[in-house]
Design a protein around this nucleic acid. Structure first.
Length: 417
RNA sequence: GUGAGUGUAGCUCAGUUGGCAGAGCAUCGGGUUGUGGCCCCGGCGGUCGAGGGUUCAAGUCCCUUCACUCACCCCA
């Protein structure tokens, strides 16, 4: 084997592919239910877009992006998107919606790229499903986002924990940040090395340090610094969540890696997927649209890690199956079998015509292998009588039916699932 | 970027003080010329991750390197 896949990138097939598709299908249906429409945006954008939105000092922008010069004369610097939100906001502004029709609800799905060291649940290309709601500053919007994830959780049959916090707005967040900074400086000698760096680059990150847990717990909490408006907003979100029966815990140490979050912030955690346990996260970003050159329009959204959610699903649920395997013995039978298989598919059945030319024994083994419920056997005998042998592979029984009764027999026998 | 663990058949893994490269599963065929799964028999399948060194002899010991995995970090 000479040519192999790139480190951190993966080929997905079989049960794993079906599992990913199931998560994405489920998420799409959920979003459509909430009258959220799809937006399709490029995978490649100008590097500056991410620098201006995610924050210059975030790790994502500093060292995780795939960035390179374009072949144009200006050598525009491009980057593979590390997350979905900036592109959606850019598209929203570019379409003029911030001025003409600010209230919008979008969902997107697709690959994101970050050049991190791979581990369980973390890949350099990964798939996200996200929802962004623009033009609404109310608490109900934030609550609805979490309700959406809770619905998806229920549809998929998963146990997930919701954590929620508020980071304040442009009025109270700076005060909180200053308090953390001062706290960090006061305890500088007790902080771990990582935290020394965090203090300068992104002080809020001090709060979710896993080494100096006691120090982090004693640090200032954003909730104590909220202004009256933010406090009321947070209380309203929590009340709505409780009404909607979404169990959630307040985590005062929950901060987000991206600069643009304001007020509500939340994270959804699975216990079933390893150390990379956050399967969804989001929050409010009221200043982002304006920061990217649009009107002062509030926004709120989330992103789901599709790969991680799929990881949490049991692989057994995605075993392959077919309603019927069609077995033809001989060339003349094959021509007839092709037509019969087409009729079955037209009736909505999942049907595979097995590769002819081998013995019946081998073909039946194959039918069993692909999880077929029934085998339809056509040889010279059946061809002459215009019949087919319909074998129930589960019950190990069979009978000969007329070819024009085949579809009806399959459907009646529970062939359609 | 940092640390630890693992690399032997398609997969999961044995392999003793250095002495002929193994098992189970999978696959293909036979037992049954047109009947799957269970059972029995057989076939196919190897650069022992790669490169170098020590040795009469290396999967095994030494060095280098690559890959994968998990964790830190970061984050969905």
């Amino acid at each position: 084997m000479q040519l192999t896949r790139l480190r951190g990138f993966q080929d997905t097939l079989g049960a794993q592919a079906r599992s990913l598709a199931a998560v994405e299908d489920c998420a799409r249906k959920m979003a459509e239910r909430h009258n959220v429409g799809e937006i399709r945006i490029p995978v490649l954008e100008r590097l500056e877009l991410f620098q201006h939105s995610s924050g210059e000092t975030s790790d994502i922008v500093e060292k995780q992006m795939y960035a390179f010069a374009d072949r144009d004369e200006a050598e525009t610097t491009l980057a593979l998107r590390p997350e979905g939100t900036p592109g959606v906001v850019r598209a929203y502004i570019e379409a003029g919606l911030d001025r003409s029709d600010p209230e919008q609800r979008f969902y997107y799905a697709g690959p994101m790229f970050r050049r991190e060291r791979p581990q369980k649940g973390r890949f350099r290309q990964f798939s996200q499903f996200g929802v962004e709601i623009f033009g609404r500053a109310d608490a109900a919007t934030d609550a609805e986002l979490m309700v959406m994830i809770d619905e998806l959780r229920r549809d998929l049959g998963l146990e997930l924990n919701f954590e929620i916090n508020s980071l304040g707005d442009s009025e109270c967040r700076p005060r909180f940040r200053q308090a953390v900074l001062e706290y960090g400086r006061a305890h500088f000698s007790e902080l771990c090395e990582d935290c020394h760096q965090r203090l300068e680059r992104n002080p809020l990150r001090l709060l979710d340090c896993k080494i100096d847990v006691k120090l982090a717990e004693a640090a200032p909490k954003s909730l104590d610094y909220l202004c009256d408006a933010c406090r009321a907003h947070f209380a309203a979100v929590r009340e709505l969540l409780t009404d909607a029966a979404v169990p959630h815990a307040v985590n005062p140490r929950l901060v987000r890696g991206l600069d643009y979050y304001t007020r509500t912030t939340f994270e959804v955690i699975s216990t079933a997927v390893g150390a990379q346990s956050a399967v969804a996260a989001g929050g409010r970003y009221d200043g982002l649209v304006e920061a990217l050159g649009g009107a002062a329009v509030p926004g709120s959204g989330f992103a789901i890690g599709v790969d991680r959610l799929a990881l949490a699903l049991e692989a057994a649920r995605f075993a392959s199956y077919a309603d019927a395997a069609v077995i033809a013995l001989g060339g003349a039978a094959t021509r007839r079998a092709m037509k019969l298989a087409a009729e079955m598919r037209a009736a909505g059945l999942r049907v595979e015509l097995l590769s002819p030319g081998r013995g019946l024994k081998a073909l039946l083994r194959r039918a069993d292998k692909i999880g077929a419920r029934y085998a339809v056997i056509i040889g010279d005998n059946e061809l002459g009588r215009a019949t087919a042998v319909l074998r129930d592979l589960k019950a190990s029984t069979q009978n000969e039916v007329a070819q024009h009764d085949l579809v009806a027999a399959l459907c009646a026998g529970g062939g359609a699932r």
